[in-house]
Amino acid sequence: MENGAVGPDPAVAAVRLAVRGTLREIEPGDLVLVACSGGADSLALAGALAFEAARSGHRAGGITVDHGLQEGSAERAAGVVRTMAGLGLDPVEAVRVAVGTSGGPEAAARDARYTALADAAARHRAAAVLLGHTLDDQAETVLLGLARGSGARSLAGMPKAAGRYRRPLLDLDRDLIRRACLAMGLAPWDDPHNGDPAFARVRVRRDVLPVLERELGPRVAAALARTARMLRDDADALDAWAERALREATVPAGAPTPRSAGGSPPAETGEGAAHGRRAGASPREAGGAAVPTADARTEKAPSALRVGALAELPRAVRTRVLRRAAIAAGSPPGTLAAVHIDAADALVTAWRGQSHVDLPGRVRVWRRYEKLLFGPSESSEI
């Protein structure tokens, strides 16, 4: 609550200042929605948005997503709607979603939630949706990415802004935000799932981070979040380089892309044959299935990249180019893993006559005449 002439509680002031900075990036008069679960982080965010929007000329509303995973979830969602309306947010609504099973319970709930938020933002024509992720959430995300052996993009954590989504609280820790929530006179709901050790993120929060703090000293979460910011800068630069490299390596549409009718590729010469060491073939690569032989006059030409241009790139850039080309050919990003990209990379850097590489989504990569081609696999060979 406010403290007379002294001003608001310092924790409240910090949260409001973070929201104020985000609103400066959005045109006055535009609608800004807050995604509010009823937990301390999102409730504090909702309270700060209501306060700041009234002073900045923005319209402010709120959305709560009912995942339907716990008894009484509809009643809790209705309570969150009443709280948001009491703060002066308008429009406010609860959206019920059906959570699937793809990718596990955490991923499925997240997918359902973001789909609901995107639909709500489109329905209300909102310019932005504010999310209550904190510095601690960022640290947990980095540790989870590290445990999975993910690359720089995953270790870079969550961005402050992505499309219509904004994360104003990403530089503030969870304890401060909870103090702000209570100082605003708001009563948060503590989701029991946030204490369930069945979830990897809960184990990181409850067990891993406290050990790191005890053994390595305080502020480990802040250090991890700072590392994520630096890695995001690096990843952004590499991604921009990869975009340019992809354009430069792409063979123009309509250029000839010869194909062998048999399973054995013609011998390669020149710069593509001399790069890299022998790479071990995966079981699928070792199968030696023939390259697709459909009539090129009726089949859509595969996309093609010049091997020489790829071979000159640093690996960090080249693998990004290969990933983009695979996704453009139809390979689903969610199932396209590092092992697939490594196998495709071996066609460039460790070429010893490998037949092809099969990627998720029935996409095949093969090498012919100093070109790396991406096209559909034949269903009979998958």
Results as ranks from 00 to 15, higher is better:
residue 212 L to N: 09
residue 197 P to Y: 01
residue 222 A to D: 13
residue 191 D to C: 08
residue 227 T to F: 06
residue 191 D to P: 12
residue 243 E to C: 09
residue 219 R to M: 05
residue 207 D to T: 05
residue 227 T to I: 05
residue 246 L to F: 01
residue 194 N to G: 15
residue 201 R to Q: 02
residue 191 D to M: 00
residue 228 A to M: 02
residue 223 A to F: 06
residue 231 L to E: 05
residue 195 G to C: 03
residue 204 V to S: 02
residue 205 R to Q: 04
residue 211 V to K: 08
residue 215 E to I: 04
residue 209 L to I: 15
residue 215 E to S: 10
residue 242 A to Q: 13
residue 194 N to Y: 03
residue 196 D to N: 14
residue 232 R to P: 09
residue 200 A to P: 14
residue 188 P to V: 01
residue 244 R to P: 03
residue 216 L to H: 10
residue 190 D to T: 15
residue 202 V to Q: 08
residue 196 D to V: 07
residue 211 V to F: 07
residue 195 G to Y: 00
residue 218 P to S: 12
residue 211 V to H: 10
residue 213 E to I: 03
residue 204 V to M: 05
residue 245 A to W: 06
residue 211 V to C: 11
residue 206 R to T: 14
residue 218 P to N: 06
residue 240 A to E: 10
residue 239 D to H: 04
residue 243 E to W: 07
residue 235 A to M: 04
residue 218 P to H: 09
residue 199 F to M: 08
residue 199 F to P: 10
residue 206 R to E: 11
residue 245 A to K: 09
residue 207 D to A: 00
residue 207 D to M: 02
residue 236 D to T: 13
residue 204 V to W: 01
residue 239 D to R: 07
residue 227 T to M: 14
residue 190 D to K: 07
residue 203 R to L: 02
residue 187 A to P: 09
residue 207 D to K: 01
residue 244 R to K: 11
residue 233 D to F: 08
residue 214 R to P: 03
residue 208 V to P: 08
residue 197 P to V: 03
residue 205 R to D: 00
residue 223 A to V: 12
residue 193 H to C: 07
residue 209 L to R: 15
residue 235 A to F: 00
residue 215 E to P: 06
residue 208 V to D: 05
residue 237 A to V: 12
residue 224 L to Y: 00
residue 230 M to I: 09
